Computed example of a mutant assay.
Amino acid sequence: MKYLKDVQEPGMGTWYFEVDHDGTAYRQMVHNDDGSWITSNRKHESRHFLLAEHPLDPKEPYYEEISQAAFEELWQKQLLGGMEDWQRIQRMFPIGARVEGWIEAFFPQGTLIQLLEPHAVGLTDTSALEAGTPAEWMYPRYRVVAEVAGYDESNQWVLLAHAEVPGDQYDEADSGK
């Protein structure tokens, strides 16, 4: 992996990326000029799940390569800010529990599932999900049921196995939200 820093135009903040040898981003952070942060592991109210959709070229002059340690230090500070929520989520979703949510986004790590609990994000294997799901159901908002298999501590995601898409879309009105 490579770690990149990009100082955008004034007012755009500083962007940080973890990319593989092909330039695919796996983690991303933005430190806004107002001091706030956006990280790719959490849904942002206006930026959704912010992660570069196209490969980055680390040779571009606007990218500065930084150390993995520098990236991890910033990432860990952001994880600490959500630690109370993360511990609550782990208690609510014990290993082996059946859970429900909906497809939220597709990342290189897998399919992100918004679980039916604020701030709770699940991750399931995209290939396995596609194998048992018609292509027309592999879109955001389609309902997913799965089993908790573990936890991704580096992203604060609930790892999901045996995920299935029943074929209906999630409707917030049904949940009373």
Rank of each mutant, 00 (worst) to 15 (best):
D57I: 12
L112P: 00
N32A: 06
A52G: 09
E60Q: 14
D152S: 11
A149V: 02
Y3L: 04
E104P: 04
I103Q: 02
H44L: 04
M138K: 04
E117Q: 10
A161F: 09
F71G: 01
H48P: 00
P134Q: 06
H54Y: 15
V99E: 08
E18P: 07
A120N: 04
W86D: 03
E65H: 00
L129P: 03
H44V: 03
H162N: 15
E164W: 05
L80W: 08
L4A: 08
P61L: 05
H54L: 15
D33A: 05
D152Q: 10
E72P: 03
L79I: 01
G101V: 06
A163Q: 02
E104Q: 12
G35S: 05
D171W: 12
A25G: 09
L129F: 07
W86F: 08
S36G: 01
T111R: 01
E100G: 14
L80Y: 11
E60W: 11
M138Y: 11
F71P: 01
G35C: 03
A135S: 12
A25T: 14
A25W: 11
A69L: 10
E130I: 13
Q68A: 13
R42I: 06
Y26G: 10
S40T: 09
H48C: 06
K77T: 04
E9Y: 10
E104M: 10
P140R: 09
D168N: 09
L115P: 03
P118R: 08
W86L: 05
M92C: 10
A105S: 14
F71R: 00
T133K: 00
E153K: 02
N41S: 15
W157F: 13
I95F: 15
L116K: 02
E72M: 13
S154K: 03
R141Y: 13
F106R: 03
W102Q: 12
A163G: 00
G81V: 01
